[in-house]
Design a protein around this nucleic acid. Sequence first.
DNA 1: TTGAAATCTGTGGTCTAACCACACTGTAAT
DNA 2: ATTACAGTGTGGTTAGACCACAGATTTCAA
Lengths: 232, 232
Amino acid sequence: MRTHELVLQWIEKQLSDGDLTLGGRLPGERAMAEQLQVSRTSVREAVRILEAMGVVRAGVGSGKDAGTVVIAEPGSALGSTLRLHVATRHLPVADIVETRVLLESWAAERAHVGVPALEEAAELLDQMDAAPDIDSFLALDARFHVALAQAAGNSVVSAMMASLRGAIENYAGELTGNLPDWNATCSRLRAEHRAILAAVNNNDGGKAAELVAAHIQGFYKKAGVGSNPPPK
Amino acid sequence: MRTHELVLQWIEKQLSDGDLTLGGRLPGERAMAEQLQVSRTSVREAVRILEAMGVVRAGVGSGKDAGTVVIAEPGSALGSTLRLHVATRHLPVADIVETRVLLESWAAERAHVGVPALEEAAELLDQMDAAPDIDSFLALDARFHVALAQAAGNSVVSAMMASLRGAIENYAGELTGNLPDWNATCSRLRAEHRAILAAVNNNDGGKAAELVAAHIQGFYKKAGVGSNPPPK
DNA sequence: TTGAAATCTGTGGTCTAACCACACTGTAAT
DNA sequence: ATTACAGTGTGGTTAGACCACAGATTTCAA
């Protein structure tokens, strides 16, 4: 077993045992190296992997943001991984979109009315009406979809859904340039968002799921990304 | 931007541009370091991250298995990431199970009859009948579920499904120890597998989805892992 | 001629020791 | 009291060395 894997194992055990919790700090790299009797290089390689997994964040200097801190950002980490695999052509964009439809439909159908995430979603819609440019609109759009997914109360689905969107974010960003009339599209998207949120708040999960599926598939279809047909 | 991120960016571009494809070899670490004008350490940190993402595999020595080659194993990579986050208590096991039910039900419903994956699934079931011990049974079980998921033809769903199972593999392994009568459980699981495969091959996707959901939820329920109730 | 042993070459894996930039902390000079 | 400055500890980066490994090549003896 390679040295850095040993370090990883040790840190994972600290997490499993609860000796290291969210917001907690890892020992300094030099201290860990001495404690585990390995070189600082190996410690750093392990930390890099954890950072790529969204389990820790490394900060220089001293004070609040300094040191290596345990965080919980599986979404961005999974997103990076998926993005790389899309780059290798091993994961087709169509499959990403299809999976996103699957997860978001499920989440919309099971969204719990009254949870804070839905209130946040409503606020985001208001902000989107006043979005000055495409980029800020898309950023708010991303947050809206994540908020909607969170309303279902399954953190794994939320994380995966966010990662799927993140994996093809650049891709989607370029696609908006292909759209003939952004203003029209923007208006349509806003209306669809309102309809989705209304269906959710009206406890009509089935309707919400249908609307979400149509919303996502519609966007990528307009933008020129193929998506497999839904099941009969 | 940190140095190793620069290296990552460069490699990702090579992948996106198609200059680096599946099975291809990265330049040696020393060569890359010189080419990008960075230290070998930084190159290695980037390679470690890619390795953790399941994008490359590093091999020492010379010959076939040597060097750093591009692979495509998103499943195991996502699994490791999820496992770590489960260790931090940020991702509940129940959410993992629930998501697994979601993905596998969807896959079972949309499985394409006649694809090679289903034939492999059938073979695996025969092998499971002759499995000598629990561990080999569980290993075959894992492969069966993956094969079933692959039959739906969505590589993202397959990868995610495999990763979910991998994330709680150790967990599930311990749980089997809690079961009072493994032989009885084993027989039940085998029968359920056959029923699922039969439903799929009979083009009864709805039935297959139901059976899969019950199969997975049943196992974890027996083993003592709570799962959220299905939607009304 | 043949076969086995030694050497060569290039790969990733590891380690040491040094220096840097950064951000806070305490102290000293104003 | 305020300001300026040195001190301390963090991660970030680098250079250079050595190791184990595995295949390719060469050497040399049977």
